[in-house]
Design a protein around this nucleic acid. Sequence first.
DNA 1: TCAACTGTCATATAGTCCTATGACAGTAAA
DNA 2: TTTACTGTCATAGGACTATATGACAGTTGA
Lengths: 135, 135
Amino acid sequence: MMFQIDFKSGKPVYLQLADQVRYAAASGALRPGDPLPSIRPLAEELRVNRNTVAKAYAELESQGVIETAPGKGCFLKENNSPFTKQVRQKLLITEIDEAVVMAHHLQVDRDRFLALVNERLDYFERKSGATKRDD
Amino acid sequence: MMFQIDFKSGKPVYLQLADQVRYAAASGALRPGDPLPSIRPLAEELRVNRNTVAKAYAELESQGVIETAPGKGCFLKENNSPFTKQVRQKLLITEIDEAVVMAHHLQVDRDRFLALVNERLDYFERKSGATKRDD
DNA sequence: TCAACTGTCATATAGTCCTATGACAGTAAA
DNA sequence: TTTACTGTCATAGGACTATATGACAGTTGA
């Protein structure tokens, strides 16, 4: 589905979820005014307590990313650009660095690493091509 | 100094430290047989409790990265790749996938992503080359 | 109105992370 | 031996994360 939790990462679940909502907003997967998944169903889907989802949403609301309306639901706010282009690039570089460090640690050389990266890019392109939405 | 902790990251301190030791080993900043900083001084320097440093070291020892000798100190192990080739590749692919997924989220296209990967590879190669020591 | 949904709040429980602190045993050098 | 270092262990407490659960009020549609 739209959100995924890594329970082994050591990173709090509510932060993972909040980050993913921000990414969805940044990437356009969620647009201003769009409803977010309701707390209870999402908690069930992610196999997480409803309080944990509520905490993620509460944080997002306090940061002005979403709007919550008791009785109605949660919606993406109009003017949400929590990430500038620079910040987004920094986020990506952090992820890339972790992979590069792991490659060093595992003594995988540059060519083999780049081959793996291309392989995974192919894999995800095939995958997302299959799930492309009609908007 | 050699290690740095980000107290705002949400990631446990002992995991951050363990990762940095692994990186130091991978990059050559620490070589097999080298002594690691002693627990108490390092804890003081990082402004962290000594138990937290001890926990990081204990994890590294259980993973075969370092060796601890009560009364003497902690030292980088000779052959620190406790993982089989398959397991290592799987670990690496997991890291790569996280970066690829992030790139998708942030709408960074393939060419730009590969350019960033190469840039970071260059960066780390320069860095590990520059930290070569005179012993 | 009634039922089913929405978010919200309060309480209790458990686990982890981190701190603080004292104590112990092994090592090494004066 | 004494002193100062090393890693290790045990205990206690605070903060945070997450769980489980019950209850409440607002919204919506039958």
